[in-house]
Simulated assay, not measured.
Amino acid sequence: MSGPRLARATVIGLLIGMATLSLAPLLWMLSVSLMQSGEAAHFPPPLLPSDPTLHNYRELFARAGLGHHLANSALVATVTTAIALLLNTLAGYAFAKLRFAGRERVFRALLAALVIPAQVAMMPLFLMLKQVGLVNSYAGAIVPGMAGVFGIFLVRQYARSIPDELLEAARIDGAGEWRIFAQIVFPLLRPIVVTLAIFTFLAVWNDFMWPLIVLSDDNLYTLPVALASLSREHVQDSELMMAGSVVTVLPVLVLFLCLQRYYLQGLLVGSVKG
């Protein structure tokens, strides 16, 4: 085998090995979720279920009420993502293309806030939401994700690649700023908007700490919080917990696979134009 072919085969083999290591926990999780109760506790643990069953999934949705918590997560993640896309794209475009007093100073201050851990701001944010009566509500779970410094920065860096001449021509033709944004800027931002949407949706869907803090009503729990609460009652039932993990992972995995082309396009174009 020649040198280039050997190098290619080596790289492909390494990639396949890394992909196998990455997928192994997910495949094991799926396999255990299909096992009979107590089967995963055997030693050595079986790799595949001896008699595959969907009993664990039926148990989750029929008795544990996970369908309601799944709907809660979908509602919070969808609404948060929609609002975040609107606010982040507007702010990112403004910092990139509109001139106003203190623009650079405000943007630098926002960037400085990136070094502050999110956990530090949770208590002040909780107290503020408590003052306005948003604790233990869907709104309280949505507010922290409505706008983020990272999202503003991402859109701003991408929007800087939009030619100023294009915007000036629209203004000369009599178009207002809202019309320019809606008909010219937003379509050009589509790749980075899809990327930001995936980032935001995944972050909100997988968030455990903030919903745990702000939500005290079991009926309002999102999926990660409900699953953690369920694990305390069924700590020995590995099969049921794995079924819950599959239900938690599957929607975002499908979403990412469906949108990965736009996601990668947004990252690659942003790296070239930014």
Rank of each mutant, 00 (worst) to 15 (best):
L27C: 10
L15R: 04
L110R: 04
L127I: 13
D207P: 14
L60F: 06
F126P: 01
I83L: 15
L268H: 02
Q131P: 00
L66N: 05
A141S: 13
L188A: 12
M242Q: 12
L6M: 13
L26C: 06
L14I: 13
A118I: 09
Q36L: 12
W205A: 13
H42Q: 15
G67K: 12
G274Y: 05
V247I: 14
E39L: 08
V11K: 06
R103S: 12
N219W: 10
E59K: 11
V225D: 04
N88H: 03
L34F: 11
R232H: 13
W28C: 04
L268V: 13
V193Q: 02
N72W: 09
S238D: 10
T89Y: 07
L86S: 05
L127M: 12
E104G: 12
L257M: 14
A147C: 11
L14E: 05
L70T: 14
V247C: 12
I16R: 01
A170E: 10
M241I: 08
A82I: 14
S37L: 01
I83K: 06
V247P: 11
I180H: 00
A228D: 04
Y263V: 08
R190C: 03
L202P: 00
L23I: 07
V115S: 11
T78Y: 01
G145N: 07
S271I: 06
Y93P: 09
T20I: 13
V269Q: 09
R171Y: 01
D164Q: 10
D207N: 15
Y158A: 14
A94Y: 01
V246A: 15
A91V: 03
A84Q: 06
V106K: 00
V254N: 03
L227W: 07
V79T: 11
F95S: 04
A7W: 13
L34Q: 05
P49T: 08
S238V: 14
S37V: 07
M209D: 03
Y262P: 00
L66C: 05
Y138V: 08
Q119V: 15
A226D: 08
T81Y: 09
L21G: 09
V272I: 13
P25I: 06
Y57E: 03
R179W: 12
L188P: 07
L21I: 15
A182D: 02
L227C: 06
A109F: 11
L267V: 08
T89P: 02
M242V: 04
V143Y: 12
E168P: 06
T89I: 02
R156A: 04
Q183K: 07
V272N: 00
A170S: 12
G145E: 07
A121Q: 12
G244W: 04
T200G: 04
